[in-house]
Design a protein around this nucleic acid. Structure first.
Ligand code: FES
Ligand code: FES
Lengths: 168, 168
DNA sequence: AGATACTGGACTAAGATAGTCCCATATAGA
DNA sequence: TCTATATGGGACTATCTTAGTCCAGTATCT
């Protein structure tokens, strides 16, 4: 149920690597200036290099990761991991697709008139999205810690302001 | 993000039709004895008949719907709509798949050692499932009413006892 | 200049999905 | 008993999506 693609899973691993990899570079403290090359990430995550390259290219086009070209170039997180939400990560890899076809903003559902569910899935979707917006990349990068997986009541998330408009 | 298949969406429409259709048959009160044929459901939901047949066959094999063969036969919900959860519905159509490959019970993930996320998606998945277990088919069948889309804190759902073991 | 490393996009194989169709079986009623 | 009505099980195909690879181009550092 409710699968995400492998690519999204890999992409999350890569993001976590970037979040944690910046730490290992300089004596324990996080160094946002540190750049990881695609090869670095591939060996660090044990994923195939071409796949990592593809995903990093995708990430670099998003707001989440910045890149520096040329020798000694590489990738780094564009923002603090604490301000990157799981919902944003899913948006990058899976697009702004919703749980059902008819709940996307732009697609018009031809069944809507006869549909007896009346947007129930849409509401469920919004609730799930709310939950994902309360989980940050920093949470994902610290597995031993229990992160706050509570409360999908749909109230405004404290991280909401980073989201592009029209995707809720 | 987090798509469910069209078939699952259709299947939910069918279930809602069965839940509501039993009502229309006899003067407003729900009649659990009323059987809907596949053709009834197809015209009621405006879905293609072969697709409806396929989905009803699937549903009949699950615990959610019972069937009567032969002339004057048809389908009806096997249980009260209030005791059927959205999580169960997803299980029927999408199988017990989890949000990521490595979070299913039986599949062993070969990346687990090097995986930096340490089961974060699994926890997210469990939370989402908790939310889906708190939404009943009866909730889905009453769109005007606001149903309780709150609290995915992971505590035991009050409907949990109907779920088959080993899928939480 | 030459090496390094990202950028953009094409491309393919494999798998999942959506939808249809056929034949067998069960039941009710004439 | 015969026939119309329905479900049961499964095969089958076209289409879309996914996963993974590869190449030619561009920017930057030494
Ligand atoms: S199927 Fe599109 S609105 Fe319900
Ligand atoms: S990728 Fe399988 S456990 Fe993380």
């Amino acid at each position: 149920m409710l699968r995400i693609s492998k690519l999204t899973d890999y992409g999350t691993m890569i993001l976590v690597h970037l979040a944690a990899g910046a730490r290992g570079a300089k004596e324990g403290a996080v160094n946002p200036e540190h750049l990881c090359s695609a090869s670095d990430v591939a060996s660090g995550t044990r994923l195939a290099l071409p796949t990592v390259q593809k995903l990093l290219k995708l990430l670099a086009r998003s707001e989440l990761v910045r890149s520096v070209r040329g020798a000694e170039g590489g990738y780094a997180l564009a923002r603090n991991p604490a301000t990157i939400t799981a919902a944003e990560i899913l948006d990058v890899f899976e697009g702004p697709l919703s749980i059902t076809e008819c709940s996307t903003a732009d697609s018009r559902c031809e069944l809507e008139d006869g549909c007896p569910t009346g947007g129930a899935w849409q509401k469920i979707n919004r609730g799930i999205r709310g939950a994902l917006e309360d989980i940050s990349l920093a949470d994902l990068a610290h597995p031993p810690r229990e992160f706050p997986l509570v409360d999908l009541s749909g109230r405004a998330s404290r991280l909401r302001q980073r989201l592009p408009p029209g995707q809720g």
